[in-house]
C-alpha cells in the first residue's frame, strides 16, 4: 500500500425527496417551510399519504382539520398517513 486511509470525515447535506417541487397546499417549495414556520428542516417535516401525495405536515393537518371528510386534497382518496 502506498497510501493508507487513516480516517475519513464525510460531509453531506440532505433534502426532502418528494414527487413534486412544491407543496400542493401552500404552493411553497418543499425545500422551504410552510407559511407558518420560519425554518425548513426537522421543524417543518413532510408527510406522505397512502396515495403517494406529499405535503408539509402542518399544511395537511390544517387541511384535514378544516374538512368534514379526511381526503387527500389532490386526488380525493381517503387520506392515510403512509408510515413506511
Amino acid at each position: 500500500m502506498k497510501v493508507t486511509v487513516k480516517s475519513w470525515t464525510g460531509v453531506a447535506t440532505w433534502r426532502w425527496v418528494a414527487n413534486d417541487d412544491n407543496c400542493g397546499i401552500c404552493r411553497m417549495p418543499f425545500d422551504s417551510c410552510c407559511p407558518d414556520c420560519k425554518l425548513p428542516g426537522d421543524d417543518c417535516p413532510l408527510v406522505w399519504g397512502a396515495c403517494s401525495h406529499c405535503f408539509h405536515i402542518h399544511c395537511i393537518v390544517k387541511w384535514l382539520h378544516s374538512q368534514p371528510q379526511q381526503q387527500c386534497p389532490m386526488c380525493r382518496q381517503d387520506w392515510k398517513f403512509n408510515n413506511k
Binding site: M1, T4, V5, G10, A12, T13, W14, V17, C54
Partner: peptide, 21 residues
Amino acid sequence: FSGRRLAWLHHLCTGELRTRY
C-alpha cells in the same frame, strides 16, 4: 429517515492519509 436524500459535499470531506512510499 424516510424521504430524505443525501448529497455528498466532497470538497468539504476530509480524509487523513498516511504515506508509506
